[in-house]
Design a protein around this nucleic acid. Sequence first.
DNA 1: ATCAATACCAAGCGCTTGCTTGGCAAGCAT
DNA 2: ATGCTTGCCAAGCAAGCGCTTGGTATTGAT
Lengths: 212, 212
Amino acid sequence: MSQAQPSQTQQAELAQLVSQGLVTDPASPKGRLLAASAQLFKQKGFAGTTVRDIAAEVGILSGSIFHHFPNKESILKAVMAEAILTCLARMESAVAKLETTPARFRALVRCELEAIHGISGVGFTLLTSEWRCLSADSQAEILKLRQRYEGLHREVLADAKAQGWTQVEPFLLRHFMRGALAETSNWFHLNGDLSLEDLVDQICLAAGMRPS
Amino acid sequence: MSQAQPSQTQQAELAQLVSQGLVTDPASPKGRLLAASAQLFKQKGFAGTTVRDIAAEVGILSGSIFHHFPNKESILKAVMAEAILTCLARMESAVAKLETTPARFRALVRCELEAIHGISGVGFTLLTSEWRCLSADSQAEILKLRQRYEGLHREVLADAKAQGWTQVEPFLLRHFMRGALAETSNWFHLNGDLSLEDLVDQICLAAGMRPS
DNA sequence: ATCAATACCAAGCGCTTGCTTGGCAAGCAT
DNA sequence: ATGCTTGCCAAGCAAGCGCTTGGTATTGAT
């Protein structure tokens, strides 16, 4: 189980999110609990993971978990919220820094792939795979974050269509992209033959993201 | 919860699979158990579905399930095996009927989308979403079927690359396609604004499956 | 020195889980 | 008529589940 090494700038971004209170300090007991939970949820699924599993992973007893969270589901909700907020922050800063649509598209693809493959936290894929394990209320809460996230994608894809980089409708293309990117978690591995950078290139190529 | 109406030719294909012993007669008690299980596994996940849920769905008591299956996991395995065998049969007959590579590609996309959206049985999406719930032995067993399935796809994509219809490596393109197609289960709905036929067209377009 | 907050343990409660056992009834071939 | 197979019920067991309660040790602020 290789762990991705966060870069210095990523640590700085994380520290900022922590100081804003949007993300839990990963060194704190609660933060370690969240990280262990995300790991286990990804491995065995939310329903397949017991609170005893989580507690054992961080070296406490199962009952002690409920000093930090009111119930098991709230752990999943927190993992999801922090995963998407972390990715969103990186995406927004990347888009702000870049000018052209293809560069922005590429950056978004890169950010999403980095999130999926655990560059900072392993919880991102849970947003889709364990979505149904959230209560309706929690789903609504997380959905707001997802809409900010998807909106950013759709904006860039709309620009791409307007500028003739693709012929596919933004909402359709975004669905295709989301699926293709999410699926990489099942076959692509960092430190494998194909680099993440190459993967991004191939995805842009396959998406037909080139002038018509 | 709208149910797709199987066509006459699909019913004939199904009957043949049943007579070969590859698929359980859906009218039999065991077949009804499989259909109900697939439905519930899709709704609530394998770990989130209890044997009492399944039993209630077909109107029996939970213990009676184990007259038909040795354990809960074997139900999932059977659902997966029958789903992939059904789809595989349709794919092989479609490819055999068609001559050109683009036509075959389109047919495979169509078959997979039909399987995903429950044209015959709702179990197909479980192959990915509930894969980790299978024991290692069961995974190996189902993997053989999946390899036949993926092999067929990869053959057609290899032809496509050789004939200049795409620039992306077959194994990469197949991963992208699988993800994009699987994701449709989260947003596309039969009887919606977009027809399945249109969806297939848009996917072929987005895949860049056109002469270079 | 005192107080309050934080992080955890020890024990266990009430419930649900997958699964077992023994038996009953209907259908069917002999 | 008999015996066998199939499909199910009734009852319940052992284990595991999420979560609660009451208490303790440590820490930093007052």
